[in-house]
Design a protein around this nucleic acid. Structure first.
Lengths: 137, 137
DNA sequence: AAATTAAGTGCAATGGAAGTGCATTTTTAG
DNA sequence: CTAAAAATGCACTTCCATTGCACTTAATTT
């Protein structure tokens, strides 16, 4: 667990029990989670705390937000080398219409998208929907 | 206006004054609109009616929904040949971070996206964010 | 054309998620 | 150990999406 503490410290995030727990929770999940998911996992904690914790993680760049089209924002840990800030380094997300889970396909980069003259691309959000590997098996 | 009525009839949508007006409104707009936008344009009408009208249009395939990441769903008329249902014929959307408007880039098709083994792609949502032509000028 | 049925419309209310203000506790720094 | 800063918890608020029910309008049947 020392690693996690070091990571948080390196990002200038104070270490609290809550934060370690939430980090651990996110790390264990291999899918993107909603705030409600976290809420259910930590029923004793307050929604606001969880909300702000995730937001802190996001601000500090250890979590990225995912808009998979369900209308509910989801979160996932940034992996090593996930430079969310850099527009050219965005991976895509896959949303399963069956189990409703969303996963990061980190190794799949988003191809360069051409836009018409006059348009300036700063950011790209790409969500593929369909059936995930677990559900199609 | 006969054209519109014919279009609605061909899609098995009953013709009402409200629907003609809303269709006209959408047709005039070259950007995707929110429910609030429609609401403002038709202050006399009820939100629910507008909501359901748009939903009807959507169900019948003459309007498509756009999730541009602002958290508010937007709507735009499907253009001729906009087969929203068909996965391979999806165009992309551009959201301007400056004026907050979202436009369909109908002529820009989404490139084929590869997904890992076991995943089945049914649908792709691609939103490019940046500065639109009007704002960058 | 009148009556019956079906669909559309309006009003009121609900629900869910996101976000804010403030008091209290915990952690860090002097 | 004490003062300051940050984190947490509680109570609200807001905004958009959605639904139930009554009422009106349009379509169909006799």
């Amino acid at each position: 667990m020392k690693e996690v503490e070091q990571l948080l410290e390196s990002k200038q995030i104070r270490i609290t029990a809550m934060r370690l727990l939430i980090y651990k929770f996110l790390a264990e999940k291999e899918v993107a989670v909603t705030l409600s998911d976290i809420e259910n996992a930590f029923a004793k904690a307050d929604r606001t705390t969880l909300y702000r914790t995730v937001k802190t993680f996001e601000d500090k760049g250890i979590v990225h937000q995912i808009d998979d089209g369900t209308g509910i924002t989801k979160y996932a840990l940034c992996e090593k080398g996930c430079n969310c800030e850099i527009e050219t380094d965005l991976h895509l997300h896959f949303h399963c219409n069956n189990c409703n889970e969303t996963v990061c396909l980190t190794e799949h980069k988003i191809p360069q998208i051409k836009v018409p003259n006059g348009f300036v691309s700063e950011n790209v959000n790409l969500v593929v929907k369909g059936i995930c590997d677990k559900c199609s098996a």
